[in-house]
């Protein structure tokens, strides 16, 4: 089986500082990979390198494209990479405001990716937008409201709808539940889990919240100081951490 995404030796430096160093892993179709670690451990740098937002200093990010098979996304041309960014890839930002157009209605936000890939029928676009609002549990009557009138949890769900409307195969998520209260988090996680299973999505989730990866991720990587210190099946890493830092991380979770 060809991996959907194969990351090899990705390194990003900020001057003398290391963003992330020599990260390698394979992600197979339908698999969800969690990346955990403390603030500044290089999780987001790694995610941005994989999603094409940052150019790594060394390494390869090979994506199994629909048309040409495995291609290195770092050396491919910018139009091709941006095309992937609005068709086969999706990126869910921690702050919904970064991923939404706040001055455009919910329907327009969801429809943007459709129009970007050439849909030119207003009625169809609107039907799909309404359908997707339903799937992320936003009432259809809100389709013409701007995201500024939405609550934080709704904005995050709208961002997810906007990203998934073109049927991507790989979703990058940067702290998707950050800044939401726990009951809203739980519903969002439920929703994400459902969508990932139903659509057969692969996903890479960066988070510092171990509960999120426990629920969503099949596999887990623990990062510290820009390096991967431990990787394995989620349950295995969380229940029997081997590296000293993973042990610290697991034991630091507050018990209620």
């Amino acid at each position: 089986m060809t991996p959907l995404l194969s990351v090899q030796g990705v390194t990003k430096r900020y001057g003398a500082h290391i963003g992330c160093a020599d990260v390698s892993f394979d992600l197979y179709p339908g698999e969800v990979m969690g990346i955990v670690g403390e603030s500044g451990s290089g999780k987001s740098t790694l995610l941005n390198c994989m999603a094409g937002h940052l150019r790594p200093d060394a390494g390869q990010v090979v994506f199994d494209t629909r048309t040409d098979g495995p291609r290195d996304t770092i050396t491919m041309s910018e139009p091709e990479r941006r095309m992937l960014g609005r068709t086969d890839w999706a990126f869910v930002h921690q702050h919904a405001r970064d991923g939404l157009r706040m001055g455009v209605s919910a329907g327009g936000n969801v429809g943007e990716r459709l129009m970007a890939v050439g849909e030119r029928h207003y009625g169809d676009i609107r039907d799909k937008a309404t359908d997707w609002l339903g799937r992320v549990e936003i009432d259809a009557s809100r389709v013409d409201d701007r995201p500024t009138t939405f609550s934080g949890g709704m904005q995050q769900r709208l961002q997810i709808a906007r990203n998934l409307v073109t049927g991507p195969r790989l979703v990058f998520m940067d702290e998707p539940t950050g800044g939401l209260d726990v009951s809203v988090q739980a519903r969002l996680l439920d929703l994400l889990r459902g969508l990932v299973r139903d659509m057969g999505l692969s996903a890479i989730i960066v988070t510092h919240d171990l509960a999120v990866v426990r629920l969503l991720a099949d596999r887990l990587m623990v990062m510290k100081d820009g390096r991967v210190v431990e990787a394995g099946l989620t349950d295995q890493v969380l229940d029997d951490p081997q590296h000293a830092y993973s042990q610290l991380l697991v034991s630091s979770v507050l018990q209620v």
Binding site: V104, G111, E112, M115, A116, V117, R120, R126
Partner: peptide
């Protein structure tokens, strides 16, 4: 990449 231009027209219609 002109999808955004149609978002403006979409907003008009909606």
């Amino acid at each position: 990449e002109y999808g955004l231009m149609h978002v403006k027209l979409y907003e008009d219609i909606s």
